[in-house]
């Protein structure tokens, strides 16, 4: 099996790596780069726990191969906070108890980042559309919904929506 050389920008850092074609993006991030903040829940694309951003779009890291992101940029939960300052979405999850065990949280946060980057004042339907792609077993979603509202307020939402 031929190995592949890839170049990926993750959270602003360029990485060059030689990987087996079958290595998933999730395993690449976690076990090759040590970015273990991206968790793995089902490895068949349903639970949404491994959501990361590839070129700004949220995707399942278990349904992508590392070789497929050659030349692209990836954002993970490790890239959100600036030093000691949490990203407003992270802060909102903390303020509103949007997490309990926290295992699913990075996947939710990354999907929400895509949403709020594109659309600072999403409608309830748009929020649910994004949240519906991930499973949380602890919170019953109540705290997560509160956190999204809080994040929208923090990030200057309430302004008219504008597409990017």
């Amino acid at each position: 099996m031929a190995l592949c050389s890839i170049q990926v920008n993750v959270n602003g850092t360029n990485y060059q790596s030689v990987v087996e074609p079958r290595l998933s993006l999730a395993d690449f991030l976690r076990h090759e780069l040590g970015l273990t903040g991206t968790h793995v829940g089902c490895e068949h694309g349903v639970c949404g726990i491994c959501n990361v951003l590839v070129d700004g779009r949220s995707v399942r890291a278990c349904l992508l191969l590392a070789v497929q992101v050659d030349g692209q940029s990836v954002e993970t939960v490790e890239g959100l906070a600036e030093g000691e300052k949490l990203h407003p979405i992270q802060q909102a999850f903390m303020d509103e108890q949007g997490l309990q065990c926290g295992f699913c949280t990075p996947g939710f946060i990354m999907s929400l980042k895509e949403l709020l980057d594109c659309n600072p004042s999403p409608s309830e339907d748009e929020i649910k559309d994004v949240l519906g792609g991930s499973i949380c077993r602890c919170t019953g979603y109540a705290g997560i919904l509160r956190a999204v509202q809080s994040a929208v307020a923090k990030m200057g939402g309430g302004q008219p929506s504008s597409a990017d």
């Binding site: 959501n51 895509e114 792609g133």
Partner: peptide, 12 residues
């Protein structure tokens, strides 16, 4: 289109 799966699936 918008009935399909979830945004994370539709993105890819």
């Amino acid at each position: 289109t918008v009935m399909i799966g979830h945004p994370q699936i539709r993105n890819r």
